[in-house]
Simulated scan of single mutants.
Amino acid sequence: MVIPNENAETARMELANRVFFRLYQCANMLHKTGTRAVEAEGLTTQQWAVLGALSRPTAEGGMSVGDLARYLKVSRQNLSGLLSRMERDGHLSTAPDGRDRRSRLVTMTASGRKVWLVEAQPKIYAYYDQVLDGFSVNDVTHTLHYLLKILENMQRVDDAQGDGAEPDE
């Protein structure tokens, strides 16, 4: 005899497996095709994310490395090499934070702002247009809603697991 709740849970887990596999594929394709969209500007999707984060009005005065890492959901260790390359390329600068000398403040340079606004952003918008072809505004709104719910739940899981990382800078 089949128990209905077991069938429902099995179906739910099979669907969950498909959702998370598709998220994995989307992340890989975003990295691959997104990087191609901005490679002429010397950027990768990771650098695009950093410039995007620093271009927000709330980040106008810069962001600490720890805050930037938390915002992007990456470790400071992974962000460190990326920031060094971007600083070397002239897209951003880092300096001691005036409010906390132990912390480094990351800001976009004039050159980085030009690359972001003039060179990369038009290509990024064209990329969005291609990838979201066939999506209505309502479809995009619903997709964003569900991705945010997944992200919030993942953040709760991460917080409960702890990452063993050292305290902020």
Rank of each mutant, 00 (worst) to 15 (best):
A95P: 08
T33Q: 03
G62I: 02
T143F: 11
F21I: 07
I124C: 08
E39S: 12
S80N: 15
G66P: 01
H145I: 05
L144T: 13
C26Y: 13
V2E: 09
G164K: 12
V118W: 01
M13L: 15
A53V: 09
A120C: 09
L144Q: 10
P167T: 11
D168C: 09
T58P: 03
E119M: 11
G90A: 08
D139E: 10
R85S: 14
W48Q: 04
D133Q: 15
P167M: 10
L30G: 13
Y71F: 04
A95C: 11
A165G: 11
K114S: 13
R85V: 15
M13G: 03
R101D: 06
E14T: 13
E41D: 15
A160R: 00
A53W: 02
Y125P: 09
V65R: 07
E166G: 11
N17L: 10
A37R: 04
L151T: 09
R104T: 10
E166H: 09
S103M: 07
H142W: 13
N28K: 14
R101W: 07
Y71D: 08
K32P: 07
A160G: 01
H31P: 02
D168N: 14
G90C: 05
T58V: 10
Q25L: 00
E6T: 07
A49V: 08
T10L: 14
D158F: 01
S111C: 04
E169K: 01
T94V: 10
V38F: 03
Y125H: 14
G42F: 08
L23T: 15
A69Y: 11
H31G: 05
L30K: 15
D168F: 13
L30H: 12
K114M: 14
Q121E: 13
R18V: 11
D89S: 12
Q130I: 01
E14K: 07
W116Y: 04
V157T: 11
R18E: 12
L54N: 01
D159K: 01
R18Q: 12
K32N: 14
T141R: 09
V2N: 00
G42V: 08
V137M: 07
E87W: 01
P57M: 03
W48C: 09
R101T: 08
K149F: 02
R85M: 14
L144H: 10
L51H: 02
G34I: 13
E119H: 11
V74F: 08
L144E: 12
H91K: 06
T35G: 05
A37F: 06
S55E: 06
Y128D: 12
T10G: 05
A59L: 06
F20V: 00
S111Q: 01
Q25M: 00
I3C: 01
A37Y: 01
R102P: 01
Q130A: 12
A37S: 07
W48I: 06
P167D: 08
M29C: 03
R113F: 02
R22W: 12
L54S: 03
A59S: 10
L148Q: 12
L82I: 10
Q25R: 10
V2H: 08
M63S: 02
S80C: 10
E41M: 15
M29L: 11
S80L: 10
